[in-house]
């Protein structure tokens, strides 16, 4: 993984669009906070490698219908940030 993009803003926020615009081919996106609502929104197209924070999904009763790379725990999130060469927290 080159860059891990951690996004906490909902898909309507301009920063969500900016984040998707900056995604490179070897990048991954981790949805946290309100960003996990993207998985409940059928109008949003997400890139290939998508992780979502399990507790944020559970808090909002969102069960991802799309095939995502993984639901992650807080510990997994730490591991992902270490694996990534760069991290951008949007």
């Amino acid at each position: 993984m080159h860059t891990l993009h951690i996004i906490s803003k909902s898909p309507g926020h301009t920063r969500f669009r900016e984040c998707l615009g900056m995604m490179g081919e070897q990048d991954a996106i981790l949805l946290t906070g309100n960003a996990v609502t993207a998985l409940a929104d059928s109008t949003i197209t997400l890139p290939e490698t998508v992780y979502a924070l399990q507790e944020d999904l559970r808090a909002r009763a969102i069960d991802p219908e799309q095939d995502i790379s993984g639901q992650v725990t807080f510990d997994d999130m730490v591991s992902l940030t270490i694996q990534a060469q760069r991290v951008i927290s949007w």
């Binding site: 920063r15 060469q85 760069r86 991290v87 951008i88 927290s89 949007w90």
Partner: peptide
């Protein structure tokens, strides 16, 4: 700005 963001290993909005 885009190129500047690329120069840093850790970027936090």
């Amino acid at each position: 700005t885009g190129a500047t963001l690329q120069q840093y290993q850790h970027v936090a909005f």
